[in-house]
Simulated scan of single mutants.
Amino acid sequence: MLARQRQEVILDEVRRTGAVQVGDLVLRLGVSDMTIRRDLDALARRGLVEKVYGGATSVIGRSTDEPGFEAKSVRQLAEKEAIAALAAQQVQPGTAIGLSAGTTTWTMARHLDDVADLTAVTNSVRVADALQRRGRTDRTVVLTGGVRTPSDALVGPVAVQALRSLHLDMVFLGVHGMAPRAGFTTPNLNEGETNRALAEAAGRLVVVADSSKWSTVGISTIVDFDEVDLLISDQGLPAEARQLLGEHLDLELADPEGAEEESVRRGTVEGL
């Protein structure tokens, strides 16, 4: 098992139980005590766990906590890959789309290599790089300006001004959290404003968010559930979340194991 895979397992266990012990992880993962301690050191440097004697505990989340891009990139890898692949199927040749900053939208961008005659607008240098990696001559990538956040989004008045003049066929929005009453949120006020401008440019708005985002609340609401046309998540989404979300928007659940996705259309349940 690679270091990133081990660290994802450790993060999942910390989120599930609130704490882990080195000895338990040694037995579970079949590696040395020193290897586990190095993994915990790496996670602690990224602000994902708090090291304690003999193990690590969860970091108590606040509505303004904003993990960096590298920190988020080790989380829910299989889920993000499945969500990204499913989201990419929504994109048709010859369309104009928007992609917000984030590790899920960045993963999605790498699934768009074969889409012809695509125009893409993003406020993320990493997403822009992923869109241009194959050097297609029939592709236009527009990168907004702005101030860079810890999660590598370009935000603020420059980005907002650029986005408010656009009209896009579809926008794919990554989020920090999703919860009843709060809707889809971010921990960065400037990013909230920028993402709202991006959402307002959309003919069809699609949120891409793995199930770990459920019940997480950032300080700034980007959009409410009713403002979103489609949410693409994964099958780890709790039943109560599926029911609630299905009353407001269309929902597709990707399967990281490769099985067919499940769909919830507003007012009806398909495949559940």
Rank of each mutant, 00 (worst) to 15 (best):
R110Q: 13
G156M: 15
T186K: 11
E227P: 02
E260M: 14
V127C: 05
G236W: 05
Q89M: 14
A130H: 04
R126T: 10
D114I: 01
L272S: 14
G236F: 03
K72R: 15
S151C: 11
L29Y: 04
L99M: 13
Q7P: 03
V115S: 14
H167A: 15
E227H: 10
E66P: 02
V9I: 14
S100F: 05
A82H: 00
G192Y: 00
T186N: 12
A241W: 07
V208D: 02
A197V: 02
R45V: 07
I83K: 00
T122V: 06
V125G: 03
E247D: 13
G30P: 04
Q5G: 05
L168D: 01
G68L: 13
T95H: 12
T57Y: 06
S233I: 09
T103P: 02
Q7I: 02
I10Q: 00
T216P: 00
K213S: 01
A202M: 11
G135W: 02
M170W: 09
R37L: 08
V223W: 00
R134G: 07
T64H: 10
D234F: 05
V31N: 02
G68R: 12
S100W: 08
A199T: 12
E200F: 07
V74F: 00
V20H: 02
E240A: 15
L25N: 01
G47Y: 12
G135T: 06
V228L: 05
D255Y: 10
V208I: 14
V160L: 04
V22A: 05
D113S: 12
D24L: 12
S220R: 10
A182M: 05
E66M: 11
F172K: 07
A128L: 04
P150F: 07
T194V: 13
Q132I: 10
E81I: 03
A179K: 01
L48I: 14
T107H: 05
F184H: 09
R139N: 11
V52T: 12
I10P: 01
S32I: 04
A162N: 06
R38I: 00
L245A: 12
M178H: 11
Q92K: 15
D65K: 04
A120C: 13
V22K: 01
Q76Y: 08
G47T: 09
G18R: 13
R6E: 00
I222C: 00
V155I: 14
L163G: 01
S32P: 00
E240Q: 15
A101T: 13
R126N: 08
R242T: 12
L48T: 08
Q5Y: 10
L230Y: 09
T185V: 07
G54Q: 11
A3Y: 02
L40H: 01
V91W: 14
M108D: 02
S32L: 00
E13L: 11
T140A: 10
V269P: 09
R242L: 14
R164S: 13
Q5K: 07
G174Q: 09
V264D: 10
P238H: 09
D39A: 05
S212G: 10
A202T: 09
L11G: 03
L249R: 03
E252D: 10
G258D: 13
S215T: 14
T194E: 04
R46D: 15
I97C: 08
A201R: 00
S233F: 08
V127L: 06
D138W: 08
R134M: 09
